[in-house]
Design a protein around this nucleic acid. Structure first.
Lengths: 364, 364
DNA sequence: TTGTAAGCGTTATCAG
DNA sequence: CTGATAACGCTTACAA
């Protein structure tokens, strides 16, 4: 058994449980028990077995175990489109956090998809229906569904992150997009701003709806009309943040009445927008205040340093894993919960009171 | 068999090959053959089987297949420390590229490690020795090794990326760090610079050695003494690029004779360094030219836009996968190759000829 | 407490 | 070309 017979050219398969059993002088099932439930076996035999296992450098075969118990210990993470943005570290931070939490609980992390074409979707479904994945965490996207098979019917626990899908029955971990943007906008209003430019991600997208909603709520609370904010963007994805910011700069240039403050829905947008504005001779925050969303580390080193809303990605990752493992354990028939982890406004030099007389602008 | 008997509370296990066989009216082994080697089965029965499989929504169980054939189709990627940097998108780009190439070849990507503690290393070794991983791509780090087991002896094809480990027997995909930095430095010399600050990653690290070597070669070629360059940094990791840049700014302030040009070994370093310099009243590139390494997208939107060396990460990822799959197929006894993918210097406004009299500075 | 034996869902060998 | 049947390495009743 195993590769004792040192056959040349043979793939070494490593020591088997049978090898450990033989070396320890016990039955193979005893080894299995000793390794899994150390309590249910005689202390002395357990020691013998441990010693034998260590001596041989035995590692249990994960696929054999998985097949037998009908479960894997791999979690897949389903990512939207591209993994990289301009400067945002949200996705890598999420991966880091989730992977860490999973490792601590004995699970592996598999990257399931980056390109949302049919091939990738099929790939995801194979992972789910083929027993490879034990659960899934899905980021900012809808459930894959290809010719009859849908991830929703895979009998797989799924947690949505960033995007609230609790209505669709998925436990979700999100941040308080709406409230955070409302507060940021309120801060701008407090400083004296009355006209705003809002730079949007994909229009109608959950984040866009929530964040823009937050702006409107703040305006409303301050007694300002909805017309106080002008929208830009809406047709490109968050991955193209730099592009969006550039287009917004063009939009800004075309405006007859200039806003005095800008609310960008991602740091990338804010960064390229600000760059263009400064090239055009505007000073920030003198002529224009800017706040954005994501809390990318680089914001601290922009000139001026960018005020941004920091998403607590690490906590969100932990929460998502906790929810998922819970669902796995309880093989849950419970109603989908929604966990909200609060974002935090980081105030920096990119916002200030509007200069001169705002009346000049508003012509009031 | 399977979940025909709709038992409540039972985990639905999905249709099995046996179910497909029954529906198609053939033997189970014929189904297996039809699905794997469509050529070795009668066209008509194949059609029947395909239809049955599709009708049932059959997905083969990956673990069963893996156990039987003694191979998985999962590749693990071993990452150094943290997954996220300041603004660099190198890691996410690598993941994207590798995952895409693997998917196209029917492989899955598993993230193997982010924290290089003993637990994680053990985890990696379990993946390797437990048959979960069929191969590994390792980024800028050495092979894990814990109590007796070493990844090197797992009988697993491994490809190193970013770091040249061809000497240690690992096929490696790297960029031409040395040459790229040499050219960048030469460009600065051509512009008239004669005194340099070099901002380093971990001292003695492969990248540091290569990149600093490139600087020295350029100096030498121009007949400049080694003393023309001052080193800063060396004790922090690349993940702490912003920190390194800040410390470098302090180092710069303490210098009696100021360099006129800075070579940062990562964009993060350059960004925080530049931010500090500008806060201190220096203008870039007027008082100081800056080039850096990585080619982060955000560099285009810094003020001034940063000259940087762009690593062809996508190509490198593809090359790494190609090498790995090759090694898997050939179960290769061939000598470890080294694939070099050339970096590219992106010229932007952060470098210029030194102003008038460098003596002004040096006099102080 | 330990051993025996029956699978888990595939693939591969070997007859037919 | 197709069908039995024996593994793959492990877990888990069940028996001793």
């Amino acid at each position: 058994m195993s590769n004792n017979k040192d056959v040349l050219g043979e793939e070494p398969s490593g020591p088997l449980m049978a090898d450990v059993a033989r070396l320890a002088g016990v039955a193979i099932s005893t080894v299995s028990r000793a390794l899994a439930n150390p309590g249910r076996v005689n202390e002395k035999t357990r020691a013998k077995i441990d010693a034998a296992a260590k001596q041989l450098g035995y590692t249990p075969n994960a696929m054999a175990r998985g097949l037998r118990v009908g479960k894997s210990n791999t979690i897949m993470i389903i990512l939207p489109g591209s993994l990289y943005y301009g400067a945002s570290q949200v996705i890598p931070q999420v991966l880091q956090s989730i992977n860490k939490s999973l490792s601590q609980n004995g699970y592996n992390l598999m990257i399931a998809n980056l390109d949302r074409d049919e091939i990738s979707e099929r790939h995801i479904l194979d992972l789910a229906f083929g027993g490879t994945a034990r659960g899934a965490i899905i980021l900012s996207s809808k459930l894959p569904e290809v010719d009859g098979r849908s991830l929703a019917n895979a009998g797989l626990p799924i947690v949505s992150m960033l995007l609230d899908m609790s209505d669709a029955g998925l436990p979700s971990v999100v941040t308080n997009d709406r409230e955070a943007v409302r507060e940021a906008t309120a801060e701008l209003i407090r400083l004296g701003h009355r006209r705003f430019l809002y730079i949007a991600g994909p229009e109608g997208n959950y984040h866009d709806v929530e964040r823009y909603g937050g702006v409107l709520e703040a305006l409303d609370a301050a007694g300002l009309p909805e017309e106080a904010v002008v929208r830009s963007g809406g047709n490109l994805d968050y991955q193209q943040g730099f592009e969006i910011g550039i287009q917004a700069a063009d939009d800004f240039a075309a405006l007859a009445v200039k806003p005095t403050a800008v609310i960008a829905t991602s740091d990338d947008m804010a960064i390229s927008f600000m760059s263009r504005m400064q090239q055009g001779g505007l000073t920030i925050p003198g002529d224009l205040s800017i706040v954005s969303f994501d809390g990318s580390p680089v914001c601290a080193f922009c000139s001026p340093p960018l005020t941004t809303i920091e998403q607590p990605v690490e906590h969100m990752g932990q929460a998502a894993v906790a929810l998922l493992l819970d669902a796995i354990d309880r093989s849950g028939k419970e109603p989908a919960t929604r966990t909200v982890v609060r974002s935090r406004l980081i105030l920096r030099e990119s916002i200030a009171a509007p200069t001169a007389s705002p009346r000049k602008h508003t012509a009031r």
